[in-house]
Design a protein around this nucleic acid. Sequence first.
DNA 1: CGAGAAATTGAGTCAAATCAAAGACTGTGG
DNA 2: CCACAGTCTTTGATTTGACTCAATTTCTCG
Lengths: 254, 254
Amino acid sequence: MKSSYQSKNDHLSESPIIGNHSAPKYNNNHSTRGHSHRIFQRRDNLFSAGDYFEGIYILRSGSAKAFITSRNGEEHITKFFYPGDMLGLDGFDANMHTQSVRFLETSSVCLITTSQVQRLMVTDQNFRAAILQSMSHNLACDSAMMMCLSTCSSEQKVARFLMDLSISFSERGLSAGEFILSMTRTDIANYLGMAIETVSRIFSSFQERHIIAVQQRILSIIDFAALNACVSIDVCAKTAATNSSSKKPILTMN
Amino acid sequence: MKSSYQSKNDHLSESPIIGNHSAPKYNNNHSTRGHSHRIFQRRDNLFSAGDYFEGIYILRSGSAKAFITSRNGEEHITKFFYPGDMLGLDGFDANMHTQSVRFLETSSVCLITTSQVQRLMVTDQNFRAAILQSMSHNLACDSAMMMCLSTCSSEQKVARFLMDLSISFSERGLSAGEFILSMTRTDIANYLGMAIETVSRIFSSFQERHIIAVQQRILSIIDFAALNACVSIDVCAKTAATNSSSKKPILTMN
DNA sequence: CGAGAAATTGAGTCAAATCAAAGACTGTGG
DNA sequence: CCACAGTCTTTGATTTGACTCAATTTCTCG
């Protein structure tokens, strides 16, 4: 896992890990044989709240957001997805989705149908572990996110969000210091529960303080230490750290 | 399920359901044979963040809170538990808990060890469904909670919290209109991400408006319609409603 | 009964929302 | 290839809901 990191990400290992990024990535090699792959474009929905639960999806490439809709029709983004993530885990409760998932860019997924899931749960120990771990991991991330939403200042929220993304990309073998924000500022604001103007102001502030550099969708983290110093919630951290270093990756992408 | 409702809860069926309260309750009848039961007192911890994951627990009686701890040692309550709830689902990710669970009153739990879980996942279709549903349900609730924390005013948060509790008690065959708050105001404030003074002020305001009556820990909801009108986030609602009325309870307490 | 904890209430302050407007970017059609 | 329309983003001015600080009051429990 570590071996696939780019060397430019090395500095990351010194900074505390923010979120629990050790989510199991499910391996295509043996799971996608015979499973359907599908390509989606930006703004396409994978499924919507209320849709029948067909099965779980593995995001193969691209990115997506999950959101729920309130009584009065307002949407709230609950999660962003990157390659290797499992989508649709909310469907087990009532055999229908409570959330919607929409793609942020051209993306591909692979479907594991409910019947396949049921079968694999019995026959495949690794699959069972991957599912449980993924759900458990999501629960932990949700808790950390709730704490962040409850107690963090806007600046801390944005800092945490960026560190989160950075580590997430790093884990996928991409640059931790420079990446593309596939979501809009509006998405970020919505996700973090703040006004879009506030997000913009904090980006500007971080830029003035030479912590980051932003050019449209391209974000560069210049001063990791400073950004990390803004972050107060890194729950799941120890677990993730201990975890990812001690256990072998169960199933990884690529 | 409905048949066990107290008649005084009938008015509830008219008000929209707030949270997804159809979480599967795991049945003691066949699962607790040979499983260890334990009694805990108020302020006891069932487990703490970092503890080894022994297995999942079913809360038999009493109530508990789950919380996580931030970098600087601050605690944040992420969930309250009532009889029938599964505790410790956060342990699957790294075989250790990322959260702590503490009891709010004298309570009893029953442990299903990890090895029993592994075995039951393979052999017991109902158990497998119950676990997946419980985790999936928690994910849905977390999403709704995140949206609430992000977008609701303090008054809406408190209103939603009370409706949530009301429905939760109702589902357990207890009064939906009058119940005991086993958590302190501080706990409520912490959970909802607001100052304790604000909680107190909103309780007072609701009381002045004859929406609720509070006497220490005893809370009475007088005007369900008015309280419900304050609530804006009832995500999971339809699912829960459709769900609980259409499907037979998989496994219930009592 | 008394000490400490929990809860309420009031007054003042501030972080972030809202309101407002300009500037930059994206994509489409001529 | 450029111009225009619409979206996205930034920046400034103002407002406000909720926090903090402070002071009681009420409750809990040894």
